[in-house]
């Protein structure tokens, strides 16, 4: 359904998608690369288990959430394709997986 008009700019690397190996261009926007790979739905909702897919692609709707390398509730539209990455569909879980941030300490910007 989604296709690229140009040759991939990054080299193809292997990532794990729900346990299956797929090749995606390194450095590409993860949500876009997954859409082109025909992945879907990205998650199901906590209340009615309804299927959802990316909506805004700019980080405001949180419909593109997935578990990346074991961390739930990652916005795939704000992530890049990294070799060896593991992406899993997220079923139902509410967004409690995000850590409560510690009180910001003044430690300067590294």
């Amino acid at each position: 359904m989604f296709r690229s008009l140009t040759e991939p700019t990054g080299r193809l690397v292997t990532v794990s998608l729900d346990g299956r190996s797929v090749e995606l261009p390194e450095g590409d926007n993860l949500a876009v690369a997954l859409l082109r790979a025909g992945h879907g739905p990205f998650r199901t909702t906590p209340v009615k288990a309804a299927p959802r897919m990316p909506y805004c692609m700019m980080g405001v709707c949180f419909e593109c959430l997935a578990e990346i390398d074991g961390v739930p509730n990652r916005q795939t539209c704000q992530e890049r394709v990294v070799p060896g990455q593991s992406i899993r569909r997220q079923d139902g879980a509410r967004s409690t997986g995000s850590a409560v941030p510690p009180a910001p300490a003044a430690r300067g910007t590294p």
Binding site: S4, L5, D28, A33, L35, R36, M53, P54, Y55, C56
Partner: peptide, 16 residues
């Protein structure tokens, strides 16, 4: 999706 999303996919990844 939104039209802005369509444009973002075009600008970042030439994806349509």
């Amino acid at each position: 999706m939104t039209a802005g999303a369509a444009q973002i996919m075009l600008k970042t990844s030439a994806t349509v």
